[in-house]
Computed example of a mutant assay.
Amino acid sequence: MAREFSMDRRAYLTTVGAAGASTAVAGCLGGNGGSDDVIVPGTNSGFAPFEFTQGGELVGFDIDLAEEAISRAGYEVGDWTDIDFKSLIPSLNEDNIDLIAAGMTITDKRQQQIAFTDPYYESNQSVLVSSERDFSPESESDLSGAIVGAQSGTTGEGEVERLVEEGVLDAENVRQYDNYTLAAQDLENGNVDAIVVDVPVAQNFADSRAVEVAFIIETGESFGFGMRQDDDRIQDINDALAEIEEDGTYDDLVTEWFE
């Protein structure tokens, strides 16, 4: 049963199409409207169980955790913005949103552009394959000659690019997707041999689709909420995250969304 929070579920805005169109729509939202009391969160759905749509509603672990953290920190949760993953950082820095909650890995490259809260989740990458075909790689070398996909702008794509650089994959055999739902569909349809995706997301796909985890790439990633580098409210969010962990709410969310 879903855990009930005291605040109402906020409305969300879904945008589709190319990244440029998504950014243009987000630009009309006006960020927090100049109010420091409102934090407008942004995400990229299609990354269950972290963020996805269900019954026309934006739900998931990141959604509940971000709303709880914003509320406990003493701010109002603005309307959610749902845009392409690669548009999230530009949208944040253009003041169209105030916080990224999208299963985003903390990396040195991203830290040059935005600030991150304290880590709230750790993950590795999975190599996901069809459970209805004979392709069953057990290691990275077994991917040689295969067609492999990942979502654009993600650390999964970064692992695919590393395999190209190391000569395991051919560049012409790499496929990029706007979201992992499309990637999983292509995998089921036989258009790619494997996709590289975060472990909990891969497990969620394996529970609901004809796909399975072939093996794990140990990356030791940490997820954080993204905020602008000059946004002093990040400390309030960090304090709220610590409180959420200490009082057991975090464990409740993990049980709800991952178990």
Rank of each mutant, 00 (worst) to 15 (best):
T117V: 07
E138Q: 14
I147F: 01
S144M: 10
E166A: 15
G190D: 01
V201I: 13
A150V: 05
A171V: 14
F135G: 12
R110F: 07
L128Q: 00
N191R: 06
V201N: 04
V129Q: 03
T117S: 15
K109A: 15
R162F: 02
S130V: 03
E159S: 13
L128S: 04
D134M: 13
L128T: 11
N189I: 00
F116D: 09
E166C: 05
P200Y: 03
A184V: 15
N191K: 11
L143Q: 05
E165L: 14
V164Y: 04
A183R: 08
V160R: 04
P119G: 00
S141P: 01
G158A: 11
Y180Q: 09
E166Q: 14
V127C: 02
F135H: 11
S131P: 01
S141M: 00
S144N: 12
I147C: 13
R175V: 12
S126E: 02
E140A: 13
S144I: 04
F205Y: 11
N173Y: 05
A202L: 04
S131T: 08
E138M: 10
L169T: 08
G145P: 09
A184Y: 00
Q112L: 14
T181N: 10
Q111R: 15
P200C: 09
L163A: 06
G145I: 08
P200W: 01
L143C: 11
L187D: 05
Y120K: 08
S126G: 03
E172M: 12
N173F: 07
V127A: 04
V174T: 13
G149Q: 12
V148R: 09
S144W: 00
S136P: 03
L143G: 08
E140Y: 09
V199C: 02
V129K: 04
D186M: 13
Q113S: 13
T154F: 07
T105Q: 11
G153I: 01
A150C: 07
Q125W: 09
V201Y: 06
S131M: 04
N173C: 10
V201W: 03
N179M: 10
N204Q: 05
E159V: 11
V197M: 07
D134C: 10
E122H: 12
A115R: 05
A202G: 02
S126I: 04
G156T: 07
Q151I: 12
S144R: 11
E188G: 01
D178R: 12
D198R: 00
G145E: 01
T105K: 08
N189R: 10
I195P: 08
A171K: 15
E132F: 12
E161S: 13
N179V: 09
